[in-house]
């Protein structure tokens, strides 16, 4: 099937070569949206919002009818001069925090937002303590003659190999 596409593409190229002079007189296309700046704002906003009827898609990416309606609603509200925050409030009043892909920071989401960094600090601290304890334990073990030999072998072997 892909092969067919390739053929079709080649054929298309041939047609294109014939057609090219026409291209010069063609008109400049216009954006689908009446107001592209507003549209950009709408898309940026709806990318972080969840489509409610879909499995897991953003409002911006969904083709569902409700998503289209909500995009239109957002467009209208932005046009009416509402701020991004007001639009988001409008949606959370109706659908709850579920519509937000970026959960708001509140006590219920502290664990979510701070968890990773607490985990990082905890793990780093744990590793540091482990190193200290380990150093102490290793220092406590006196080296036997056999172990000394091994250490020397290690030192020799360990020059350049990664």
């Amino acid at each position: 099937m892909r092969l067919n596409m390739k053929l079709a593409q080649r054929a298309g190229l041939a047609i294109f070569a014939l057609w090219f002079p026409l291209a010069a007189v063609a008109g400049e296309a216009v954006p689908v949206a009446e107001d592209p700046v507003l549209e950009q704002r709408m898309i940026a906003l709806s990318e972080d919002l969840r489509c409610l009827v879909c499995q897991n898609e953003s409002l911006a990416g969904s083709r569902a009818e409700l998503a289209q309606d909500l995009r239109q609603e957002i467009r209208d509200q932005l046009r009416a001069g509402k701020s991004d925050k007001e639009v988001i409030n409008y949606l959370t009043q109706r659908y709850g925090d579920f519509v937000l892909y970026k959960p708001p920071l509140k006590p219920l989401t502290w664990l979510l937002w701070f968890g990773p960094f607490v985990l990082l600090i905890g793990a780093a601290g744990g590793f540091y303590l482990y190193l200290k304890r380990r150093g102490a334990r290793l220092a406590g073990e006196s080296l036997s003659a056999e172990e000394k030999q091994r250490v020397e072998a290690l030192l020799r072997n360990n020059g350049n190999e990664s």
Binding site: D48, D97, L100, Y101, P103
Partner: peptide
């Protein structure tokens, strides 16, 4: 039972 939220790309 603490409600529904979504966690998506921004997070």
């Amino acid at each position: 039972g603490l409600g529904k939220i979504s966690v998506g790309p921004p997070y």
